[in-house]
Amino acid sequence: MPHIVSVDRLSKTYEGGFEALKSVSLDIEEGEILALLGPNGAGKTTMISIICGITTPSYGSVSVGGHDVVTGFRAARRLVGLVPQEVNVEPFETVFNTVSFSRGLFGLPRDPARIEAVLKELSLWDKRDSKLVELSGGMKRRVLIAKALSHEPRVLFLDEPTAGVDVELRREMWETVSRLKADGVTIILTTHYIEEAEAIADRVGVIAKGEILLVEEKSKLMKRMGQKSLRIELTAPLDAIPDSLSGYALEQDGPDALIYTYDTNAERTGITRLLGDIAAAGLHLADLQTKQSSLEEIFVSLVQESAA
């Protein structure tokens, strides 16, 4: 099956010579939620802007639904909804009209019922006759989402949708995203919040300094990069780690607990031997806990690797 979005060796050098994207290739599957994770200035917005037609590429090509975004821009753009990073709205227009306008702009006939459904989905129906200038920041952002959904896109780009948004609204947005996914919409969101990628993405792409470092299924990524830690609680406090355990690089965590870090992908985790040696050292176990490292730790280690 062809990919719904295909980015091929895309490069962008801005006027002034700054290279924001360096030959980026990326294939996006229909119906998935892809999180593009990267620090500020990584090139996330640049990539999305090229796909959506706001920025011109310096080299390379992009296709959406099999249509090239330059030569077949009409067919390609019809499939795409964009929620930009910057919250810019026409101040004196009403919520309903501005969303209705977007639908028309994308070549669809008026459909008040559809606009009503979108506004209700985003809890904006009560505000339909309010001028945009009267809305809070979070509501304006939801208006931008409503605008992007007004023309029933098959691919939705959300550029840092939850930056500066309160917890409740963030949760609501995640719910909206999962409902859209259930309807078959492909969603690409950029974020520098790792929890966000962790919470809703199917795949995670890590981008830094204009290059994609990897794209992988979230679960695989976490497994592949998966360092786990084992917390060993003892029945009695410990003055120092016994010499017989010095080979395990244990860390002491409070007076009566030890932390052992191991790699789930290694042939041997060393747990069995460690527990045996602990018993042999005359220590008694009170409890054991294992913890998967978060995407955050994975991310930090990746970006550090690429910088090295």
Binding site: R77, V89, F106
Partner: peptide, 17 residues
């Protein structure tokens, strides 16, 4: 005006020439 307030992105990303 749309250029100034930044809403021009919508015209640029719409399926129009």
């Amino acid at each position: 005006f749309p250029k100034f307030i930044g809403t021009i992105y919508e015209h640029l990303s719409a399926p129009i020439s």
